Simulated assay, not measured.
Amino acid sequence: MPVSLKPSERIARLADRIEAVLDANTRASANPEALAQLLGAAAELGGGDAYTSAKLVELMAKAQIFYSARGFFRLPGTAQRLWNDMRHDLLDRIRMRSRVLASQGD
C-alpha cells in the first residue's frame, strides 16, 4: 500500500482485502493459500494502530484454526461461530476503527 495513505484509508483497504479473502474461502478446511493472503494483508498494515493490530491478531488466530487441516470442528456450530467472529465481528470492528480515525481527521 502506498505510504501516503492516511491510517483510516490503509485500514479500510486492509478490511476490503480481508473481506475478499474470507468471502472467497467460506469453508472450514485446510487452506494455506487463504492464510497466506490474510497474513500478507496484515503485514502490509504494519503496527501503527494498536487497536487494529489487536483485532488482526484475534482474526488471524481464528483463521489459523478455521483454515487448518486438523479436526477442530467436532462440536456442532464451531466452524460457523469462528466464521461469524472473523467475517462479522472482528472485520466490522476493523472497519469501525477506520471510520473513527477518518472522523477524527487522522
Rank of each mutant, 00 (worst) to 15 (best):
I65H: 02
E19M: 00
A28Y: 03
Q64H: 15
A15Q: 01
L90I: 04
S29F: 07
L38Q: 07
E58G: 07
S29V: 15
E44C: 06
R93L: 13
Q64K: 09
M60Q: 08
K55T: 04
D92Y: 12
L91M: 07
A61I: 02
N31Q: 05
A41W: 08
A20M: 09
T52Y: 03
M86E: 02
I18Y: 03
V21I: 13
Q64R: 13
D23W: 09
A42E: 11
R74H: 13
K55W: 00
L45H: 06
P76H: 11
S68D: 03
Q64N: 12
A63H: 01
N84A: 14
R27M: 12
F72K: 02
L59Q: 02
A36R: 15
D89T: 15
A54Y: 10
L35V: 06
E44K: 03
L39R: 14
G77L: 10
G71S: 13
Y67M: 04
T78H: 15
T26M: 11
G46A: 11
L75H: 09
E19R: 07
A63K: 03
L39H: 14
E19Y: 01
R27C: 06
A24W: 14
G46I: 09
H88K: 08
M60R: 13
T26N: 10
A41N: 04
M60W: 00
P76Q: 14
A15C: 02
R17L: 09
Q64I: 12
D85G: 13
F66W: 01
T26H: 10
T78C: 06
M86T: 00
S29H: 08
A69M: 06
P32V: 06
H88G: 05
K55V: 06
A41V: 04
L56D: 01
A54N: 11
D92T: 12
P32T: 10
D16V: 08
L90T: 08
F73P: 07
H88F: 10
A28C: 00
T52G: 03
L22V: 14
G40V: 10
L38C: 08
N31C: 06
Q64C: 10
A69S: 11
A50S: 11
A42G: 10
A36D: 15
L82R: 03
A50R: 13
G47N: 12
P32M: 03
L59I: 00
A50K: 15
L14P: 04
I65S: 08
L56N: 01
F66A: 03
V21F: 03
E33A: 14
A54R: 12
H88C: 04
R70N: 05
W83P: 07
L59M: 14
R17S: 14
L75M: 13
L39Q: 14
G48F: 07
R27T: 14
N25K: 04
T26K: 14
L22Y: 01
G71N: 14
D89N: 15
L56F: 00
R17T: 11
S29W: 04
D89V: 15
T26Y: 09
L82F: 12
A54L: 10
F73A: 08
A30Y: 15
L39G: 09
R70M: 00
N84H: 12
T26P: 08
A61G: 13
E33W: 12
D49E: 12
R74A: 11
L56W: 01
T52H: 01
L35A: 04
L59K: 03
A42Q: 04
K62W: 01
R17V: 07
Q80S: 14
A24V: 09
T78D: 08
Q37K: 15
G47S: 10
G47Q: 11
M86G: 05
L56E: 02
